[in-house]
Design a protein around this nucleic acid. Structure first.
Lengths: 117, 117
DNA sequence: CCATCATATGCCTATATCGGCATGTGTTGT
DNA sequence: ACAACACATGCCGATATAGGCATATGATGG
């Protein structure tokens, strides 16, 4: 009876990278490891904010951390992005034809155009 | 004052594909267009549920619809997945080395392993 | 014009976050 | 042991869905 809500999408890589700021973090980390504070500063977010996003990224395995003195260096572990790349790549032949079953659409091209405007 | 909440992630392709069921829909549509009901049946979801997911996919441009008699055929428009593919591809060289700045990590390999267990 | 089938929406509940802020925890150097 | 710095967490408020269900909207064939 309990109205089921959102599926347990969490802890999923796709979900982790659905957040713009988390993608920013990953991109930034390509340049090398960084302590939380520096990361937060470079991306214009608060330290707690950065820590929370890093936590999500860590839980799905996209980043790793190691201690370095007082700080904690976060580094990229992009292996988890490979499935994403491959999944999207599975549609490669489709984006070359604009969209699937092109022929079928061609018949109604005019209608489709109308809908666009 | 107004505690800002979730960023306007909506209407973003990354967000659209963060939902497992929506990914399922896209994959299914690779086999060709389908009316909503059939899609819902094949994926084991309710018709309203399918419609809602399709709406999100449509809003980010990943699917297109055209009328076919009483029904509405949904078809794939994978062009929007290209940016995703490329974004993830930008990390390709990193997942080959396990994680970025491998050398730095190697020094602390033992520590890293410990953290893993 | 109406009955019917195919979809889209609205409403409601439970939940998942995001952001901001305050505070707990851990580490280092003195 | 303590002050200081670097992070991680907890809590709160506001919001964005996901699902289920009922119902409005649309198009079709008579």
């Amino acid at each position: 009876m309990a109205p089921m809500a959102r599926a347990a999408t969490t802890s999923d890589v796709f979900n982790a990278i659905s957040e713009p700021q988390r993608r920013d973090i990953l991109v930034l980390l390509r340049a090398g490891e960084r302590p939380v504070t520096e990361l937060a500063r470079e991306l214009g977010m608060t330290q707690p904010g950065a820590s929370k996003h890093l936590r999500v990224l860590r839980e799905v395995g996209l980043v790793r951390d190691r201690k370095k003195g007082k700080q904690r260096l976060y580094g990229l572990d992009a292996r988890g992005l490979r499935p994403v790349h491959e999944w999207a790549g599975g549609f490669e032949r489709f984006w070359n034809e604009s969209f699937g079953r092109l022929d079928a659409y061609v018949q109604d091209l005019k209608q489709a155009k109308q809908q666009e405007e």
